[in-house]
Design a protein around this nucleic acid. Structure first.
Lengths: 341, 341
DNA sequence: TCCGCTAATGCAAGCGCTTACATTTGCATT
DNA sequence: AATGCAAATGTAAGCGCTTGCATTAGCGGA
């Protein structure tokens, strides 16, 4: 193997007239080196334009200083806020972020997790709790520090930093029920392999069940996230024999799609039908009527997750997750049911 | 340094009864190893639960198989589509993605670039062309393969895969002028250190200049990207002595913010004033009236950028950039000027 | 001046892997 | 059976860095 041509620690040590050990210490913990020596070394480093070789460093220190995250998708802004905050904290801690996406496919997620670990991720941020046994085994066997987010389960053994999707679903459903809605439809994300989507729908069902008859769910549709998908699902739920007076959507993208479609069909929101979302995405403010939705404190979640993960990596085994709270955001898309409804 | 406890290549070679070289070959290029041997080795690997050590691999092979990207922000969905596509191609090629964000700050970008390179990025994807000399020097001196995107300059020596922001600006401005607008205002992103924002505005000015008087720009406002910022800027441009009949915005987020504000103010779009965006963000479809804008083929751009970067990393020095084409998307927010306008 | 102690530095052994080169093996030809 | 050649495998030298331990320098106190 021919050398790279770039200056090495060795070169620096030669120029500075000290040992490689001293140079290494000077770079990693300057306090261990006498000021005068430090200055010499710095001069040599500048002169040579030296930067430490990543591989050598990783090999010798057994640390990469990078953490990985696998998100379902980057396509819509869904995870962007949290990810940005996560990244900021990490960067401040001198870590870099490895990013991969799974397309909501557990097998793909497992592949990405392995790839990230193979690429030296010291820790991992994962979305949701729901994953196959083999993935969990891998994480456990390799002892990969990881935190789960975008979800919360108080009694889990895993480290979870997020919010309770079920509670979010319940919150929005209760808001609709409180206004007198008794026939509601649900448009959710595909709940298979997706605990967040499943939790939100379960929460909505909880709220309905708590009221009991005559409150009822006229129709449930699961679909991929997308404006058009939300619109199509809206068409479906409105064609049910007894049309709902409120359509509860699993997220703002679906809800926004539903509102656009209602507009196309000449159905007035909220006069003819109420529509709600979850997430408090930008879209929720922009669509007319603006969406009543549940706000998720993305940035705080990302920041907290980063802190916990950094702790985990540093070897703090006492860390547990924490819950961030969601809150109802009232806008125009939700009102009481129409008089005849 | 105590050993990690995880099985090593050496362990595998011992169990399989072959040399470490053979095991290494078996992992990196199975065709070089006899089938029978391969099977033995595979058995040993499975038995031990072996996975290659990242550091050793990087050190010995001088490749990390990861590429870095520095985007201005992850907060809004701006770059999400392109990034997702970029990542998909990379993953298919067995690379992982390192992500950092700069917050539109050149110094921060330089820091992130260095961090990514220090963390072993084999190549870099950067947004835009406009960066300080020291950043460019660093890239050149370290010979970091990199491609620039979200912009295009045919006569640049750098590798650029993107679209011509100036052309996009011209396109949308021409559309407005063709409808008879003669008094237009511009709301753009902050153009300092941001060639994309500057290019878009320059394109708009080009179009205006090409028509000549009485076509004129009543007001130009630069502001950060955000719905509220767009709204505030809208207020400003509408207060000018002679109010514009069309407000050209540098992107869809600003334009959407402007439309929302117009609605608040009781100003009808497009009857009283036309508003346009650039990007064809999801928001553009959702806001009412829907935005006339310029579509940017994000996914294709991301995909192409990944291809070029992979080529560059593989050592292909002949690669040049390529341009992807933008196109006008006509929706309702742009119409002719009001009769008196 | 000498001693003892701490702070600073040096020595050298790896970390786990890849790969150029050398060697052996297997097999078809003669 | 001897030969030649390609395919398969082994040998061993690093890749550049960190770090435990040994050594030396520096300095205050007796």
């Amino acid at each position: 193997m021919e050398p790279s041509g770039l200056p090495t620690l060795q070169d620096v040590s030669r120029v500075a007239g000290v040992s490689t050990a001293t140079v290494s210490r000077c770079i990693n913990d300057p306090s261990k080196v006498a000021r005068k020596t430090r200055e010499q070394i710095q001069k040599a480093i500048d002169e040579l334009g030296y930067t430490p070789n990543f591989g050598g460093r990783v090999l010798a220190s057994r640390r990469t200083n990078s953490v990985g995250v696998v998100i379902p998708t980057m396509d819509n802004a869904m995870f962007a806020g949290a990810l940005q905050a996560f990244q900021e904290v990490l960067t401040d801690a001198g870590k870099t972020l490895l990013v991969a996406s799974s397309g909501y496919d557990p097998a793909q997620e497992f592949r990405q997790i392995r790839a990230l670990v193979a690429n030296g991720a010291d820790g991992l941020l994962l979305i949701g709790t729901d994953r196959p046994q083999d993935t969990r085994d891998f994480l456990a066997r390799r002892r990969v520090p990881h935190v789960l987010t975008w979800c919360f389960e108080p009694d889990s053994t895993a480290c979870i930093v997020g919010f309770d999707n079920r509670k979010a679903g319940r919150l929005i459903a209760e808001a609709a029920l409180a206004l007198g809605h008794r026939n509601v439809a649900i448009i959710g994300g595909i709940s298979r392999n997706n605990d967040r989507a499943a939790g939100r729908m379960a929460g909505m069902r909880d709220a309905l069940a708590a009221i009991g008859p005559p409150a009822r769910i006229t129709r449930v549709v699961e679909t991929r996230y997308g404006l058009d998908q939300g619109g199509d699902a809206f068409d479906v739920v409105m064609q049910a024999n007894s049309a709902p007076t409120a359509v509860l959507c699993g997220n703002d993208v679906l809800a926004t799609g539903a509102i656009l479609r209602a507009r196309d069909r000449g159905i007035r929101v909220p006069q003819d039908v109420s529509i709600t979302g979850i997430d408090d995405h930008n879209l929720a403010r922009v669509v007319a009527p603006a969406l009543t939705t549940v706000r998720v404190p993305q940035r705080e979640m990302g920041r907290q997750a980063a802190r916990v993960l950094l702790g985990l990596i540093a070897g703090d085994r006492t860390l547990r997750g924490c819950e961030v709270e969601v809150s109802l955001v009232r806008r125009q898309s939700l009102a009481g049911p129409p008089p005849g409804g």
